[in-house]
Design a binder for these strands. Structure first.
Length: 576
DNA sequence: GCATTCTGCAA
DNA sequence: TATTGCAGAATGC
């Protein structure tokens, strides 16, 4: 069925006017509108918003009238603020562009239209309301056309015509229809809900950090025997490597590196590097989180609202921005205190978190079919311990923490497209030892090595890699004559099916879970790649956790079964 | 003001 | 010379 409603574009700010260009279905609206005379758009602009909303609401909420748009999550939120629940989304051309070629730098309407519609012809009357000459896209007088909201709707509808066959050809229809499109609704609601912060936690931490930073600053200036801007790598270089005369470890593009690896190496030789490290870690927490997040609490909701971007990460993951709630600290004690500032938004509410255990390694085991790795997961073993036992040739009970740490680094490294150089740098061991580790690792997991080799060969032949759900990433750099570029693409060829399949899995879990959570009186708040955080009524934590575990573990049957850990509490730190 | 670089937080 | 992101501060144009 032809999309009945071609385009509706609301201005971003409520009350500033609504542009309602409608073509093909003038009979569907009570608003009188001649589709061949877009000067009437300007008259529509003068209509009271309530009139417009009242006319559009039944259409927008009708699931049987397919809607197409570009970045529909945005429109969905605008509509929701006007009391309209958008239903019947058939295609989001931003998402379609992303599925078609996720590596594109941007999937905004301008660039996607220029790329896919440059050679099409369009009736100029559709854009400026006069004449009927066919013109090429390049000829469209943008200064006139862009004033009309119909341009967005028109371009998006034309793009749908491009992407429908492309999605079909590339086997992406199911992913689009069954996962990405329904996910838009889920994400829109997550963004609108937001998550509550405890202002007192942040105020207390801010004061504490300010004191500690002040004291550190004094000690740093004493150790350096001068005052300088500690946050300036340029000034710090001069102090460390010229004034004090420490030996430079590594260069950056523009100077001498002062990053954490370098400073740790220098810490034995002078007091200053260690003080800088501590200062940096506290300054990071203060500047990026403790002082920044409370400012972003929305005055009306009292909560913090991120944006989940569905068309950024080349592997299929979501990303989060403004603020990024997918990189809230957790590894240090100070970091965990920040997490403790994310709270359930009421006395009678609790947070529940459910996270996939070792999802990427389980995906690797499944994709490669490696019997030893699969067996370890089926036995619900500690995978890093099991790996260490195999690689070091000892019984699992005899694996030391250091052995486990090293095995863990190799397990992670494999998923990233490991090299002996990279592993040696990560573990701080000689390169030949790293090479030995990797060889021993692959001797234990031979099918993993075979899979890694095959995936790169296939990627070179086909030009792309795919996830278990058919998500596709093109890797033209595999043919580069630049060895660095080529090697980088080979690592991406290895990592993308693993990271991307994990992304597919949790996305499907979100879509499946959303209506069930709603029925259980709970609501999804955050996704952090392998973790979902929801808010539920106090006393229903166990019910909610069981629901989440059940859905998440059964999204997909794998030879290495999916496992989910859950927890609950008043705040995000207490959960884990 | 805007873009780039360095740095460091997360999975 | 290990994957994917986002963001703050400094810096330079």
């Amino acid at each position: 069925m032809l999309a009945a409603l071609v385009g509706v574009s609301l201005s971003a700010a409520p009350g500033t006017g609504y542009y309602i260009p409608v073509r093909h279905t003038p009979e569907a609206l009570t608003i009188q509108h001649d589709p061949d005379d877009l000067t009437s758009v300007e008259r529509l602009d003068a209509l009271p918003p309530e009139t417009v909303i009242a006319a559009l609401k039944p259409l927008l909420e009708d699931p049987d009238i397919p809607k197409t748009g570009h970045n529909i999550k945005y429109d969905m939120i605008v509509f929701a603020n006007e009391g309209v629940e958008l239903r019947g989304v058939g295609m989001d051309t931003m998402v379609a562009s992303y599925l078609t070629d996720p590596s594109r730098m941007r999937h905004n309407l301008d660039e996607v239209s220029l790329h896919y519609l440059r050679h099409t012809t369009i009736p100029i009357s559709a854009l400026i309301g006069k004449g009927s000459r066919q013109v090429t896209f390049d000829e469209v007088p943008v200064d006139r056309a862009c004033g009309y909201a119909c341009e967005d709707a028109d371009m998006s509808l034309r793009l749908e015509g491009v992407f429908r066959p492309l999605l079909r050809e590339r086997g992406l229809e199911a992913l689009h229809r069954e996962i990405e499109i329904p996910l838009i609704h889920v994400l829109a609601r997550m963004e609108m809900r937001g998550i509550a912060l405890d202002p007192e936690v942040f105020a207390r931490m801010s004061a504490g950090l300010a004191d500690r930073l002040k004291s550190l600053e004094e000690r740093i200036f004493a150790a350096a025997d001068t005052q300088f801007n500690i946050n300036s790598p340029k000034q710090l270089q001069e102090i460390l490597f010229e004034r004090i005369g420490l030996k430079p470890v590594r260069k950056t593009k523009t100077g001498l590196s002062t990053d954490v690896d370098v400073l740790e190496e220098l810490a034995g030789k002078h007091p200053l590097p260690g003080l800088i490290l501590e200062y940096r870690s506290l300054e990071k927490l203060r500047g990026t989180y403790v002082d920044a997040l409370p400012k972003l609490v929305h005055p009306r909701t009292g909560r913090i609202h991120t944006s989940f971007n569905q068309a950024v990460a080349a592997t299929g993951r979501l990303s989060s921005s403004n603020p990024n709630l997918q990189n809230i600290p957790v590894r240090t004690e100070d970091g965990r205190q920040i997490r403790g500032g994310f709270i359930a938004g009421g006395e009678n509410l609790r947070l529940v978190s459910a996270d996939y255990s070792q999802i990427e390694l389980r995906v690797l085991a499944h994709l490669s079919g490696d019997p030893a790795m699969i067996a370890a997961f089926r036995a619900d073993a500690d995978i890093h311990r099991d790996t260490a036992a195999r690689v070091f040739g000892v019984m699992p009970e005899l694996v030391s923490p250091e052995m486990r740490r090293q095995a863990k680094a190799v397990n992670f490294g494999v998923v990233y497209g490991i090299s002996d150089f990279g592993l040696s740098r990560n573990l701080g061991i000689p390169r030949h030892e790293a090479a030995r580790f990797i060889a021993d690792y692959f001797a234990q997991y031979p099918r993993v090595r075979e899979w890694l080799d095959e995936v790169v060969v296939r990627a070179r032949e086909e030009g792309y890699v795919t996830t278990l759900f058919g998500r596709r990433r093109y890797l033209p750099e595999l043919g580069s004559r630049d060895a660095n570029v080529r090697k980088g693409a080979e690592r991406a060829a290895i990592n993308t099916p693993v990271q991307g399949t994990a992304a597919d899995i949790i996305k499907k879990a979100m879509v499946d879970l959303d209506p069930l959570l709603e029925r259980a009186g709970a609501r999804m708040l955050l996704q952090v790649h392998d973790e979902l955080v929801v808010e539920t009524e106090a006393g229903r934590e166990e019910e909610t956790a069981a629901l989440m575990r059940g859905v998440m573990e059964n999204v997909l049957e794998m030879s290495a079964p999916l496992r989910v850990d859950t927890g609950s509490g008043r705040n995000w730190s207490e959960i884990h």
